[in-house]
Amino acid sequence: MITILLVAVGGAVGAPLRYHLDQVVGRRTFPRGTLLVNVVGCFLLGFLVQTTSGPALALLGTGFCGALTTYSTFGYETVRLLEERRYGHAAANVAVSVVLGFAAALLGLGAGRMLG
């Protein structure tokens, strides 16, 4: 039961932060806000799995990072770009999101290993 509460508390902080960052960074011609939160979340989760465990990982990894990042918005924004016939932007969104997310996770893991 305590783990569920920790996940909820982490999510209660991560979701509003995601919303705020998306509003600050904006969308314009490319969904930069979603890209930013997803890449930051990949780095943080990589770092956290190397440096925390148990309740802290539930709070920060599952709760906070889970609410901060958003695969559903990434999917929706990519589909929206396709519907607007902005095929290059849609392809770039997918490629950049996957490559930068993967790289950020690797960097987070490496940074966590260095400190752990």
Rank of each mutant, 00 (worst) to 15 (best):
residue 21 L to Q: 05
residue 46 G to L: 04
residue 78 T to S: 12
residue 83 E to T: 11
residue 96 V to A: 13
residue 96 V to I: 15
residue 19 Y to T: 06
residue 40 V to M: 00
residue 74 F to T: 07
residue 5 L to C: 07
residue 108 G to S: 05
residue 115 L to N: 01
residue 88 G to N: 02
residue 108 G to F: 09
residue 98 V to Q: 04
residue 4 I to W: 13
residue 85 R to H: 13
residue 59 L to F: 09
residue 56 A to I: 14
residue 71 Y to M: 15
residue 33 G to L: 10
residue 3 T to D: 15
residue 22 D to Q: 11
residue 9 V to G: 01
residue 111 A to I: 03
residue 68 L to N: 12
residue 81 L to A: 12
residue 46 G to A: 09
residue 34 T to M: 10
residue 92 A to Y: 02
residue 70 T to P: 04
residue 27 R to Y: 15
residue 103 A to F: 07
residue 97 S to T: 14
residue 74 F to M: 10
residue 113 R to E: 11
residue 92 A to N: 07
residue 11 G to F: 08
residue 82 L to N: 03
residue 39 V to G: 02
residue 9 V to K: 00
residue 39 V to D: 01
residue 19 Y to G: 00
residue 2 I to P: 01
residue 109 L to P: 00
residue 33 G to M: 13
residue 79 V to C: 03
residue 89 H to K: 00
residue 7 V to K: 05
residue 62 T to L: 08
residue 28 R to K: 09
residue 30 F to W: 11
residue 10 G to S: 12
residue 87 Y to V: 13
residue 43 F to M: 02
residue 14 G to N: 09
residue 5 L to K: 03
residue 60 L to W: 12
residue 108 G to R: 07
residue 42 C to E: 05
residue 63 G to M: 04
residue 74 F to H: 10
residue 19 Y to W: 13
residue 20 H to A: 14
residue 104 A to Q: 00
residue 15 A to K: 06
residue 96 V to F: 11
residue 93 N to F: 02
residue 100 L to Y: 02
residue 46 G to E: 02
residue 52 T to D: 02
residue 113 R to H: 15
residue 82 L to Y: 05
residue 37 V to F: 03
residue 26 G to R: 04
